[in-house]
Design a protein around this nucleic acid. Structure first.
Lengths: 148, 148
DNA sequence: ATACATTAGTTGCTTATGCAACTAATATTA
DNA sequence: TAATATTAGTTGCATAAGCAACTAATGTAT
């Protein structure tokens, strides 16, 4: 049956991505953020002071997409861009008070979605799923990086 | 470390979705199709004669998105829309010769991506990954369906 | 030092997608 | 049967994202 074919991996990924975005969008609406920004904010909580280019590389995101996501975060008051005087091409990114105050909320939103979609998986299966996802993501990265 | 946190499941899903789309887009370019259409075509290979609404439900896709994807498939000559005379609101979808001639090609494109991303997984792990993905997708569906 | 190359970031264009408002057809109910 | 509700499909609008062309700053090579 189609839904059990190997080819349907792509369908599950697509569905999870779309549904995840719907959920995140709804949760973030009251904070004037959307699914297109949270990854950038999350990575800044881990590494304040990154440049846009570094973030784009870490997230494997287009630099144009990154520029616009950061612009939105700045516009909404979560991030400040500071030109790096040692190399004036670079803009380093810093979190505002508003962003720091929001960190635990973002974490709980992200975890709540994970809990929804893994609710009936054993801890073992959750860890296994995470490992497999990471592995196939790395394969995808490797492949497309080589193409460029 | 951030990249090993539970929260990063969303990042892997996002990355797989984006990179998968880049790959599929590149492969489909010469056929005048994109990542936004292949799922609709794939499901029609399994069930010719479905209506747009049925497809939208099966793929858990918005009906507007479905309308536009089918319009593109029709414009490019892969699909024909026929008003269902028993209920003139419904348009049933049929594949053209061009679509039939393309089926094996599409299958091989989709499989080649799966093979790229699962290249170092054992058959066991591949099946396990598929089962887990399906399970968490169903959880996502259940949750958002209940919200509406 | 001047010319060329690379890098960081921005912006225009395109596609994919969800949501909401709309139309037309059919179904239900008073 | 006439009025209302539901359903299938379309379309406008907004967001997310990649690609490519561009600018400004820095680096390299002659």
């Amino acid at each position: 049956m189609f839904t059990d074919n190997k080819e349907s991996i792509g369908r599950w990924i697509s569905l999870l991505h779309r549904y995840g975005n719907v959920y995140i969008n709804e949760q973030l609406k009251e904070y004037s953020l959307g699914a297109g920004q949270y990854q950038f904010l999350a990575i800044l909580y881990q590494n304040e002071g990154l440049s846009q280019d570094e973030i784009a590389c870490l997230l494997k995101m287009d630099k144009g997409t990154t520029a616009r996501a950061i612009a939105k975060l700045e516009k909404e008051g979560y991030v400040v861009r500071k030109v790096f005087n040692v190399d004036k091409r670079i803009k380093k990114l810093y979190l505002t008070e508003k962003a720091h105050a929001f960190e635990s909320k973002l974490t709980s939103i992200l975890l709540s979605w994970i809990n929804i979609i893994t609710k009936d998986l054993s801890v073992n299966d959750q860890e296994y799923a995470l490992r497999l996802l990471k592995k196939i993501s790395l394969n995808a990265e490797d492949y497309l990086d080589k193409m460029k």
